[in-house]
C-alpha cells in the first residue's frame, strides 16, 4: 500500500512537471515568434517585468491611507477625487484615471471584487493575488460577503452594513480602512506600517499597534 502510494505520488509529480514544461515551452515559442517578427524586443519584456517587481505594490496604497489618517484636508480631497489627490503626493509617477477611494466607517464596511475578471488598482496595490482572480472569491463575494470574510478570519459586526463594489468598468476602487485605536500621535511613517494590502481591498483590517509584523 505504501509502495503504491509512492508510485502514485511520483506519477503525479512527473505529470505536473511535464505539464508545466509544456506551458513553459509554449510561452517561449510565442515569445520567439513575436521577437522574430519584430513585434517585441525580449529586453523590453525584461524591463516590463522589472518595473512591475519594483515600482508597484501595496506600499503605494499604504502611503495614501496613512496620509488620509493624518491630514483631514487630504482625506476630503481623496474621497472627492482619488486620482487627483493621489497625484499630489507624487510617489506614484503617474496615477491612472478613475481611482475611487471608499471609506470604511463604524456604520459601513467596504469590500472590492471583480466578478467578471480581475480588475484591481495595480498602481496602488501591485498585481492582484491569486485568490482575488480565482473563482471562489469572484463567485461568492457578491452573494455571501460575510462568509468570504470568515475565510480570511475576519468578521464585521452584524449591525454594520457591508457594501460590495464589483469593478465592472475602468473605475478602480481603494478602501480607506478605519485608523486603528491607540495610534494617537503616531507619525504618517509609523501608521504606514499598519496598513495591509487586504485592508485596502476590504478583506482585512489594518494591524493593531504592537501586533507582530
Amino acid at each position: 500500500m505504501t509502495e503504491h502510494h509512492d508510485d502514485h505520488g511520483h506519477h503525479h509529480h512527473d505529470h505536473d512537471h511535464s505539464e508545466l514544461s509544456e506551458t513553459e515551452l509554449r510561452v517561449r515559442a510565442l515569445e520567439t515568434v513575436l521577437a522574430e517578427k519584430g513585434y517585441i524586443e525580449s529586453a523590453a519584456l525584461d524591463a516590463i517585468i522589472q518595473a512591475y517587481e519594483t515600482k508597484i505594490g501595496p506600499h503605494n496604497g499604504a502611503r495614501v491611507v496613512a496620509k488620509a489618517w493624518t491630514d483631514p484636508a487630504f482625506k476630503k480631497a481623496l474621497l472627492e477625487d482619488g486620482t487627483k489627490a493621489v497625484g499630489t503626493l507624487g510617489h506614484v509617477s503617474r496615477v491612472g484615471d478613475h481611482l475611487v477611494v471608499i471609506e470604511n466607517t463604524p456604520q459601513r464596511h467596504n469590500m472590492v471584487v471583480c466578478t467578471l475578471c480581475s480588475c484591481y488598482p495595480w498602481e496602488m496595490l501591485g498585481l492582484p493575488p491569486v485568490w482575488y482572480k480565482a473563482a471562489p472569491y469572484r463567485s461568492r463575494a457578491v452573494k455571501d460577503p460575510r462568509g468570504v470574510l470568515t475565510d480570511f478570519g475576519v468578521s464585521v459586526p452584524n449591525d454594520v452594513e457591508i457594501r460590495v463594489w464589483d469593478s465592472t468598468a475602468e473605475t478602480r476602487f481603494l478602501v480607506l480602512p478605519m485608523r486603528p485605536p491607540g495610534t494617537e500621535g503616531w507619525s504618517e511613517q509609523q501608521l504606514t506600517e499598519l496598513v495591509t494590502r487586504d485592508s485596502m481591498i476590504g478583506t482585512g483590517f489594518p494591524k493593531m499597534p504592537g501586533a507582530p509584523s
Partner: peptide, 12 residues
C-alpha cells in the same frame, strides 16, 4: 461568476 455556488473556500 458573481453568485455562483460550489467553488469552495477562498484560500489566501
Amino acid at each position: 461568476m458573481g453568485g455562483m455556488d460550489g467553488f469552495g473556500k477562498v484560500e489566501p
